[in-house]
Amino acid sequence: MSSTHSSRFPWNHLIGFILSIALTLLAVFVKFYTSFSDSIVVWIIGTLAIFQALIQLFMFMHVTEGKEGWINVVNMIYSVFLALVIVFGSIWVLTSGHAAMH
């Protein structure tokens, strides 16, 4: 648990904010000003999005804070697992087989 009862300047938040703006601009740059193939672009900007989500989660939302920090982490990992199953599962099931025969 981090001690948060300090009157220091919130560097943590400021760094997180600057990083998230920078990552957003970087994603725009990769999309519009590089000549990678479409799928590589999606992989790169997708990774950047995950970094941004982690910034929010750790620097703004303090996911590991509190007595149940580890439960929050398990909960988030499990939810991300579910998200992956739902997204990739649905795409796989609905765009292969009969649907691929359009």
């Binding site: 199953v85 099931v93 292969s96 087989g97 009969h98 691929a100």
Partner: peptide, 16 residues
């Protein structure tokens, strides 16, 4: 991880 077994006959690929 098993939901598709309710609609095998939809015409999924063999892998699915």
């Amino acid at each position: 991880l098993v939901w598709v077994h309710h609609f095998y006959t939809m015409g999924n690929s063999a892998a699915v």
